[in-house]
Nucleic acid binder design. Structure first.
Lengths: 198, 198
DNA sequence: GTGACGCTATGACATTCGTCATCCGGGCCG
DNA sequence: CGGCCCGGATGACGAATGTCATAGCGTCAC
């Protein structure tokens, strides 16, 4: 019996995944949590063999949780977005598996079993794009500024929220725009996000 | 036995919902489709009593499908985003139910049963915000321009893609910015989107 | 210990954006 | 029939944005 913990902030999805895995004779869902910052306690309490983590959760992101869980249990990232940067960061964080939510439903149980057997499970197509796109060229601050720029904040807003000078913010934006190959701020945010660099 | 069809583009989620409903003794999932434009044919072939529709799907959006299905079968919109505008448009399109994906898993089966019994099922909290936020003040063209502006397109880009003059695009953007209470293009896109006006 | 690089900052400049006034033509409603 | 609003357009103006050169400071690697 493989003991599985599921972390996903959407109740319906989480329940669905649990129901799906519950159909498998050799898999048992021993816990469900809705927030990233609840995972560690639940792992300590329930001793699962495999942990399924969504990336976008309140509290802690699945990637951050994966880092903290590195070595403790096997982690499979289950995410909506097959972004190359996410895959890279997941592997860096010690995740054993990476499954996108538009993969065939049967693949999830298969991934759990293979991870349990000590294998690494990664969508091969995604692995290729992750390699071709490459690692993020953005510095920490450039990321910060791009994140702050999302939603249409002005330079002044960003400067205030990061305690920087407006000129400095403009510089970071300019260099981020250059590195992403974009032609303006919004495009830079959009492409950086789509590659999982934020 | 209530016959249900599920339309959602993410395999895992769709499979999960199917597994979840499959656990109910009085519900039978008779078909699953991944694209909006496959729903109508599948409905004709399988004669479901209730259709669950995700909004964001390739082909046709769940809202468009709901319109075309109005009067044929009972429709429940199942979506990630509890946006007021989505709810409004869903009801306008004749949907009988509106469930957000972070609702408790038990609620889905309950919603299916109540819709089957002829009731309307709507998250009451969401209904309130839908009323307070009000209908979209944006004209069709303003919506088009905002959609085209998403992702960081320049005025020139938008003008080309919509076959308009740059000046006209600027005017629409300006009025959309005014109506959304935003301070620039990106903010306008962001708030319009979050209210389900796009 | 000396580059290389990242973080912060300044100032100047050209370009793009957002706003406003104004215009025309076509529906639609009272 | 006469407003009134929407789609479309022009031109002008000020404000915000993006670019570039330059510079000081800290840290890390070689």
């Amino acid at each position: 019996m493989i003991r599985v913990l599921i972390a996903d902030d959407q109740d319906l999805v989480r329940g669905g995944l649990a129901a799906l895995l519950g159909l498998e004779p050799d898999i048992e869902v021993v816990a469900e949590v809705a927030r990233g910052d609840e995972v560690l306690a639940s792992v300590a309490a329930c001793h699962p063999d495999v942990v399924l983590l969504d990336i976008e959760m309140p509290g802690l992101s699945g990637l951050e949780v994966a880092e903290r869980l590195n070595g403790v249990v096997r982690v499979v990232i289950v995410t909506t977005f097959g972004r190359p940067g996410y895959l890279r960061r997941a592997l860096d964080a010690g995740a054993a598996g990476f499954v996108v939510k538009d993969a065939p439903a049967a693949e999830l149980a298969a991934a759990v079993r293979r991870v349990m057997a000590g294998e690494r499970v990664v969508d091969p197509k995604l692995a290729v794009t992750a390699l071709t796109v490459g690692a993020s060229p953005l510095t920490v601050r450039e990321c910060d500024v791009l994140r702050a720029a999302d939603g249409g904040a002005s330079v002044a807003d960003i400067a205030r929220s990061l305690f920087l000078t407006e000129g400095t913010v403009r510089n970071y934006l300019s260099s981020a725009i250059g590195k992403t190959g974009a032609r303006n701020r919004a495009e830079a945010v959009s492409t950086a996000r789509s590659r999982g660099w934020l």
